[in-house]
Amino acid sequence: MNRILAYSDRNRKELLRDPLSYVFCLAFPLVMLVVMTLVDTSIPRESGMTVFHIQNLCAGIAVFGQLFVMLFTTLTVSKDRAGSFLVRLYATPMTSTDFIIGYMLPMLVICVLQSILIYAVSFMISFFTPDRLNPLGLIASIPVLIPSAAMFIGFGMLFGSLFNDKAAPGVSSIIISLGSFLGGIWFDADATGGTMLDICKALPFYYCTRSARAAVRLDFSASACWIPLLIVTGCAILLIVLSSLAFRSRMKADLA
């Protein structure tokens, strides 16, 4: 446990001391939150477009922020693999489990803190919008966001293990684009219907935003919250297992 905590501490410090992590994981999502709220004020309420209403937008932005934590997980793992720092650690009593949990744990904590900050700013913004956010809904939504955080961290670990430090961020960027677009963060996926909705529903991102938005509304019905949450949890478990296997296999190859 001491080794896991030591490695988690190291990874947390490496991330929090990178100024770019604040720009991408915090400043950019918050800027988007403000910008999209301003966009929402320009859209007539009669249009029925609710995706940028603060109670929908805040959960979408929280998921959007998690996508960048995925990018930084990818960068951390792939850069560590490219240098000789991991080689040095391979020659210590560190096991593959220590490495895997040591990467995931601090990223998960950062995701939770990020969601709290995004929701806190959203709550303040809601005083200036027609829709006041319910603090209970925001609090309830934070644990609901944990499985999606785990899933994105799993993606990050997977790409960081499979690709080198040049290719891995590019692959992560594809997931950022797919996740933010097909996750229904920037448009109302349910309102589109047809093939577009089918594609959204075939990917896990849609369920991340759907379950988080339902929790913000304090709607804990099976269709709105629990079933999407179950799907995201399943995907998170799958991604964590796959990324652990990929990391172990890469470590085994490095030690061959």
Binding site: R10, E14, D18, G83, S84, F85, R88, A91, T92, P93
Partner: peptide, 30 residues
């Protein structure tokens, strides 16, 4: 592994950690 130490050709240090933190980190790893 607990009885060896290695310094590789490339300086394998955690770049964003201070010197003290690097040393503390390795001590905790052991």
């Amino acid at each position: 592994k607990p009885m060896i130490g290695i310094s590789t050709q490339d300086t394998a240090v955690a770049e964003r950690l201070t010197v003290r933190e690097n040393l503390e980190f390795m001590a905790r790893i052991y």
